[in-house]
Write a protein that binds this DNA or RNA. Structure first.
Lengths: 147, 147
DNA sequence: TATTGTTATACTCTATAACTATA
DNA sequence: TATAGTTATAGAGTATAACAATA
C-alpha cells in the first residue's frame, strides 16, 4: 500500500457531527449485520419485531412511522417476519386495519438475541467509559428524538 | 391518526447508542440529500470530492479506503464526478495507478457548497449547545476513528 | 373523499467476484 | 504472483405512485 502522502482527512466534512454520525453508523450497521447473520436476521427485521413486541397490536402504518419511513416499507418486512413464524397480522380496530402481534417464537427469538445485542453495544462503545456511553446516548436522543 | 395506545419505544433497542446512531444518521442523510438535491449532488459524491480536494493525487483505492468501502465502489463515483467536470483521473506513480485531482470547477463547487453544509450541520445540532455539539463530535470520533 | 394495507416500480448504495493491464 | 482499476452482477434498503377495500 505505502501511501507516502498520507491522508489529510475529509476536507469540508472533517470534524463535523454530520460526518461523524455517518461514519459511526456505518460501524454500527456492519457490526450488527454480522452479528445477526448467523441467526438469519437483519437490522430492519430486528427493529420491526422489537417495536411490535414493545407495542403489541400496533398497526403497520404506525410501525412504519416508528421506524421512520413510509407505509409501503412495512409490508415486505412483515411478510418476512410472518414467514419466519415470528409475528402475526391479526384483525385491528377497523376492518381495514391490522393489529400486529409477536408469536411466542417471536418473543423467544428476541430473548435469544438479547445477549448478542448487548455484545454489539459493547463493541460500539468499547472506546468509551460507561458515563461517556450514557452521555452519548443522551446526546443522540436529542439529535433524533423519539427512540 | 389517533393511535390511542401510544407508542412504547423500541423495546430491546431503546436507549442504546447503536439505535441512537441509526436514528440520528437517518436524520443526517435525509437532510443532506435534500440540501444537495438542488445542486444535483449526493452525499457520497460530496464525500468523495471533498476527500480528493483534501488529498490531491490520492489513488482510487485509497479514496475508497478513506470512505470505508471496497475499491470497486470508487469507479462509478469517479465516473459521475468526472462527467460533471469536477475531477480528473491523471497518471499516478505507477502506470497501473491513477492520481485524482479536483478541477477548478470542482474546487468552486465545494466553495459553493460550504455554506450549505454549515446550515446542514446547524440543523443537525440545533438541539445542542455549542459545547455539546463539540463534545458529540469528539465522542463520535472515538466510536469511529479516522474522520 | 380519506385512510389502510398492499403492490409495482425504480433508484441508490453496497459487496463480491471476475476481468485487464501492469508490476 | 500480486496489485490497481474496472466491470458485471446481485441484493438490500428506500421512496413514489397507484391500487383495492373500507370508512
Amino acid at each position: 500500500m505505502n501511501n507516502d502522502e498520507g491522508q489529510n482527512g475529509s476536507g469540508l466534512l472533517s470534524g463535523t457531527v454530520s460526518y461523524g454520525l455517518k461514519r459511526a453508523y456505518r460501524r454500527v450497521i456492519r457490526d450488527l449485520e454480522e452479528a445477526l447473520r448467523p441467526h438469519d436476521f437483519t437490522p430492519p427485521l430486528l427493529a420491526a419485531l422489537s417495536i411490535v413486541e414493545a407495542n403489541p397490536g400496533i398497526a403497520p402504518a404506525h410501525l412504519a412511522e416508528a421506524m421512520g419511513h413510509g407505509r409501503s416499507r412495512a409490508a415486505p418486512l412483515l411478510d418476512r417476519l410472518e414467514a419466519k413464524g415470528l409475528l402475526e397480522r391479526r384483525d385491528g380496530a377497523d376492518r381495514r386495519s391490522l393489529g400486529l402481534h409477536p408469536t411466542p417464537e417471536g418473543v423467544a427469538m428476541l430473548q435469544r438475541l438479547r445477549p448478542l445485542l448487548q455484545a454489539h453495544e459493547g463493541r460500539i462503545t468499547a472506546g468509551l467509559g460507561a458515563a461517556e456511553a450514557r452521555g452519548l446516548a443522551a446526546l443522540l436522543e436529542r439529535v433524533a428524538p423519539g427512540g
